[in-house]
Amino acid sequence: MSKEYPGNPLNSKDFKKALKTKYVPTAEYAWSAGHAINRFLTGLKEGRILGIKCRSCERILVPPRAFCEECFISVDEWVELKDTGTVNTFAISYLDTMANRIKKPLLPAVIEIDGAGGNGFLHMLGEVDPKKIKIGMKVKAVWKPAKDRKGDITDIKYFKPARGGV
């Protein structure tokens, strides 16, 4: 192993002085939701959480998809689930989406939706003291008012501890 290694680090001061070019991309996208997520988001607009059952492995798939990735067959048996579930895991985030520091933490969590055999999706927790959140805690969806829902994951504002939960 030779002794001299290449590479020229710049400290902040040198970096300010160094010659640079700059570019800010302007790229906008619009994604169609596809067969399964279209129906899922439509369900959220109606205040319902929908899953889809694979007739082969009998798993309830949430978030729903048009095909079962394990059995590799199309799936089409829609099932309405409760809007309650269990905290599978969570974090207490003092970073916002662009990694800026924030004082009031965001509370992302994976919620296992009741009746879906442990399957679920990423969402947020609310109306809860961060110190009291536990994995395994029972939670319930808090919906936006019907008139404000638009067929988006944020039609559920967050999940809060279910009464008599924990």
Partner: peptide
């Protein structure tokens, strides 16, 4: 389609996995 509008941060996935 169903995650980015929640405003996630990359560190979340590690925090969620580590906590689990």
């Amino acid at each position: 389609l169903i995650e980015r509008n929640l405003g996630p941060n990359l560190v979340w996935i590690f925090a969620l996995e580590m906590n689990r």
